[in-house]
């Protein structure tokens, strides 16, 4: 049921991508996502897809599992495709009634679709291969310079890591409560939209109560262990760059160079 959502969940495997420093993956993903939006050229997307495929291959996350992560955005994807296809002006290819498909529209839709798919797959690859703890740890490191202007970097990172930590727990809880109410004859599928929305009240109320209870317990447990914010806090396993991280950065630079060359100078 609801547990099928792979977005943001860690996939356990022993691969070089899993072992990379989280900062490498965070910056790499960021650069990759930006690279998708700088140029709108078919060959750039080919390069981007190839780069991603190599990373997926190295990560040992099954490709079918990656594709499952696209399920939640399927609707948005189709919507974007149709909108782009129908409402871009240009040379008309086919037309019927008030709608017409143009060559430019088709192209635009193809670009947008590819962009979206690569965007989701790319960011999913990061969250699938990095535990939330390591990810927020990396964020804290990367954002450290902002401390100078009094941004509460540690607190933000702590909040994020707690939030991420609780996503799978809340999903599990939702699944459990839904099942419990189904056992009491609940019906989440039939009826119109208002009836459907109403049928979720018996799930949402216990879910909120449990979330608040958990938050309360956690705050208590943290205080009992003398948590008092980031000042003077050291780390059990400080982040450290290794040889493979430099290799990864070099690969990233090569990719970036390729994209820029293809996008800016080649006329394919």
């Amino acid at each position: 049921m609801i547990r099928d959502i792979t977005l943001g969940q860690y996939y356990q495997a022993d691969s070089v991508v899993h072992r990379l420093d989280p900062r490498t993956k965070l910056l790499g993903t960021l650069v990759y996502l930006i690279s998708l939006f700088v140029f709108t050229k078919a060959w750039v997307f080919v390069a981007a897809a190839t780069f991603l495929l190599i990373c997926i291959f190295l990560s040992k996350v099954p490709f079918s599992y990656m594709l499952k992560g696209l399920k939640p955005i399927l609707f948005i994807l189709l919507f974007t495709l149709v909108l782009n296809m129908l409402f871009t002006k240009g040379t008309v290819l086919v037309s019927w009634w008030k709608f017409s498909i143009t060559e430019e529209g088709l192209k635009q839709a193809g670009y947008m679709g590819t962009r979206l798919i690569l965007l989701i797959l790319g960011s999913n690859l990061m969250t699938l291969t990095t535990t939330p703890t390591r990810l927020t740890n990396a964020m804290e490191h990367v954002m450290k310079p902002l401390k100078v202007i009094h941004v509460p970097v540690h607190e933000i990172a702590m909040m994020m890591s707690i939030a991420l930590r609780f996503i799978p727990i809340l999903l599990e809880e939702t699944d459990r409560i839904m099942k419990a109410q189904l056992a009491r004859g609940a019906d989440f599928e039939s009826g119109n939209i208002i009836k459907k929305a109403k049928s979720f009240i018996p799930v949402l109320v216990p879910l909120f109560i449990s979330a608040f209870r958990r938050a309360n317990d956690l705050a208590m447990a943290m205080e009992a262990r003398c948590y008092h914010g980031g000042n003077g806090r050291t780390q059990y396993r400080p982040l450290k760059y290794k040889g493979r991280d430099f290799a990864a950065y070099i690969l990233l630079l090569i990719y970036l160079a390729a994209v820029i060359v293809i996008g800016k100078f080649l006329n394919l």
Binding site: A183, R184, P202
Partner: peptide, 20 residues
């Protein structure tokens, strides 16, 4: 299956967390 769940009643573990 909905009717079945009336005839075969299941009380989950810690069922007090399903009250609403």
């Amino acid at each position: 299956r909905k009717a079945l769940r009336g005839k075969v009643g299941l009380v989950f573990q810690y069922p007090e967390y399903q009250l609403f």
